[in-house]
Amino acid sequence: MSYWALNTVFLLAALGAGTAAALTPKGRARTAALAAAGGTAAVVLVLTAVFDNLMIAAGLFTYAPDMISGAMVGLAPLEDFAYPVAAVLLLPALWILLGRASKARPPRRRP
């Protein structure tokens, strides 16, 4: 199984959650989460590029050449960027979706 085949599972799940969150009614939490996700994506992708290249250059890990696409950002294969993209999609989506669910039920009173 190639890295892209494995990444597809995570990216589809994250994309599904992100789509569901983007389709929720507008609100402050949704707007803030989506704006933060855009800024976070830029930062996380730059950090991934820098530190993945450093770790690969230091010999901490390697990739099987027949498992990667061959598209590279420095020494890092493009597949390395799928997990940060999935995280940037999934975490704000869960924040929006779970926050909306918690507002739907009344708060529990303590005795």
Score class of each variant (00 low, 15 high):
L12W: 00
T24A: 06
A20P: 02
L94R: 04
K26Y: 00
M55H: 15
L34V: 09
P106C: 09
A42T: 13
N7E: 11
V43K: 09
A101F: 09
S69P: 02
A76V: 15
M1P: 15
T8M: 10
N7D: 09
T24E: 03
A36D: 11
A64D: 13
L78C: 01
A76C: 02
L6I: 13
Y83A: 12
D52A: 09
V88S: 03
A22H: 08
P65A: 03
Y83E: 03
G70W: 03
N53M: 03
A86S: 01
P107R: 15
V43S: 08
L75W: 09
A49E: 13
T48S: 07
A101E: 15
Y83C: 05
A57S: 14
N7H: 09
A37G: 05
S2V: 06
V44I: 08
T48Y: 00
R30P: 03
K26R: 14
G70L: 01
D80T: 07
L91K: 04
S2R: 10
A86N: 07
S102A: 11
F10K: 12
A64S: 09
P84I: 04
A20D: 05
A37K: 01
G39H: 01
Y63F: 14
P92H: 05
G70Y: 06
A36G: 12
L91T: 15
F51V: 15
W95C: 02
N7A: 05
